[in-house]
């Protein structure tokens, strides 16, 4: 499509949307999805997942975890890295962490509150549009990862539940990092990646912190064995996000812009 036609088409689409309520957020979301190239990001994720599965299936996982375990044990005698139950789930967790990192990087680098304000959005509209974009990307990551895992999985119930729970932990940390970015107007991906790495570290250090938190994961696993892990995790994330989002949006709205 010629450049002039593309702009005219974008303008016509935007004007058609502008008469309906919520159109500012919808228009912003469409633009964010376009400029952050969500589609190519998901394709990159697929490539990362396949690469990591190949690496781990060549024995790299065993070498990496045994090295990490030896290093950690020299500082924390009681520490043990939980071994990956199957060659598939462990690299998938890592892949999800990488995917979250990629998603956060792709979304945070080009988006700024000041720029959106200068283009006629309010702070609430900016925050809601970004949150929707983040949720869409997280959802896309989730669907992509599951589509990769399902044909190859031979999980038993405990491993698949563990995978789902940790998967939602990872998405949750991605969203938390994303919301912090919205609230603090950070424009750099390291903030979100800290939270993503934190999710992975949480998994690796599970034997340590589960003792302090009365075995949260083990408790969760007990519940998971009797009920649907996905629904429980999703409900938890929605509730926490439902509390955090209004708070952070309110905080964002109080922030003056220094010009």
């Amino acid at each position: 499509m010629a450049t002039e036609d593309r702009f005219a088409s974008a303008q016509a689409d935007a004007r058609a949307n502008m008469t309906s309520k919520g159109s500012a957020i919808r228009n912003a979301l469409v633009w964010y999805m376009r400029v952050t190239k969500v589609g190519p990001s998901l394709l990159t994720l697929l490539g990362v997942v396949v690469l990591i599965m190949v690496l781990f299936n060549t024995g790299f996982a065993t070498l990496a975890t045994s090295s990490l375990s030896e290093l950690a044990s020299s500082f924390l005698p009681e520490f043990t890295i939980p071994p990956p139950p199957e060659p598939l789930s462990y690299p998938l967790i890592i892949a999800l962490g990488n995917a979250s990192f990629l998603g956060a990087m792709g979304l945070t680098m080009p988006i700024g509150l000041e720029s959106d304000l200068s283009f006629g959005l309010t702070r609430k509209q900016h925050a809601l549009a970004l949150l929707l974009c983040g949720l869409i990307l997280a959802g896309g990551l989730a669907i992509t990862s599951v589509l990769v895992a399902l044909p190859l999985s031979q999980f038993d119930l405990v491993q698949s539940s563990r995978f789902l729970l940790l998967f939602f932990y990872d998405c949750f940390f991605f969203l938390i990092g994303w919301l912090v970015i919205i609230a603090r107007q950070y424009r750099h991906f390291p903030i979100a990646s800290i939270f993503t790495v934190g999710g992975i570290a949480l998994y690796l250090l599970e034997p340590l912190w589960s003792k302090w938190t009365l075995g949260t994961v083990n408790l969760g696993l007990l519940v998971i064995n009797d009920t649907n892990a996905g629904i429980l995790s999703l409900v938890g994330i929605v509730v926490l996000t439902g509390i955090l989002v209004p708070t952070i949006i309110t905080l964002t709205c109080r922030t003056p812009i220094k010009v």
């Binding site: 702009f7 974008a10 500012a24 633009w31 720029s115």
Partner: peptide
């Protein structure tokens, strides 16, 4: 600073949307 990676066409697109 947040839009340094954007091209001119991206910002014109943004104007058309917003």
């Amino acid at each position: 600073a947040a839009i340094n990676g954007f091209k001119t066409c991206d910002l014109l697109d943004k104007g058309a949307h917003f």
